[in-house]
């Protein structure tokens, strides 16, 4: 039997496995929570001012996504090969990544510190923050999967893939993790609003 014939079913099985794993992840996040909130409860919570952590997460997500868009635009306009050979372009992209990291450090990391002797996070915020790494793990996995599919398809039949992609893959996973932290916090508040705390 030709081993090449095996790749299509293997790819299909792997894809199905990933989809099932995603469904199980979402189910595990929702399972064990309280019954869905009523529209009145949702509207009351939605009418309240955002918590400090929620505001910071929106800032982190907004600036992070803007920086990701800027990086994609720069690399897509130049093309990956030009990008790898052009030190100035690489520096620009690195600057965007550092802005994303700095924003994350300013808006999300110091939230665990106390301000004027009073903690800036309460226990519900801490619970939401503790669940955010689930989303970070998923974001990292999806980024790597997207790269492997894109590169495999683009360089099919070629002797190799340019080594420059290695750093691009690293930085994209790094940025995805940072942005997904803010996204995970906001998802946590959304789940709490719609499915109770559990």
């Amino acid at each position: 039997m030709n081993t090449a014939d095996l790749w299509t079913p293997i790819a299909l099985l792997t894809g199905t496995g990933f989809v099932l794993a995603g469904i199980m992840l979402v189910r595990s996040l929702v399972k064990g929570r309280l019954p869905a909130t009523s529209p009145e409860e949702r509207s009351e919570i939605a009418s309240l001012p955002m918590t400090g952590l929620q505001k910071r997460a929106w800032w982190g997500l907004g600036i992070g996504l803007a920086m990701v868009a800027a990086c994609v635009l720069v690399i897509a306009r130049a093309g990956p090969v030009t990008y790898f050979d052009d030190g100035d372009l690489r520096l620009i992209v690195l600057a965007f990544i550092m802005v994303t990291l700095a924003t994350h450090l300013v808006v999300l990391v110091p939230t665990g510190l106390s301000r004027g002797g009073r903690p800036t996070l309460d226990e519900r915020d801490r619970m939401v923050l503790a669940r955010a790494p689930h989303v970070q793990a998923a974001a990292g996995l999806i980024t790597v999967a997207a790269w492997s599919i894109a590169l495999t398809e683009s360089y099919r039949g070629e002797p190799g893939i340019p080594t420059g992609f290695m750093s691009l893959i690293f930085w994209s996973v790094f940025v995805a993790q940072i942005v997904a932290h803010s996204g995970g916090v906001l998802l946590g508040y959304w789940l709490a609003r719609h499915h109770g705390e559990g």
Binding site: T37, D122, E123, A192
Partner: peptide, 22 residues
């Protein structure tokens, strides 16, 4: 009590089980 207003609202709705300290 040192928490957010959101926490008080979800507590009142029975949507959040507080820690013993809170």
């Amino acid at each position: 009590v040192g928490c957010t207003r959101q926490t008080i609202v979800v507590l009142e709705h029975g949507r959040f089980v507080p820690s013993l300290a809170l």
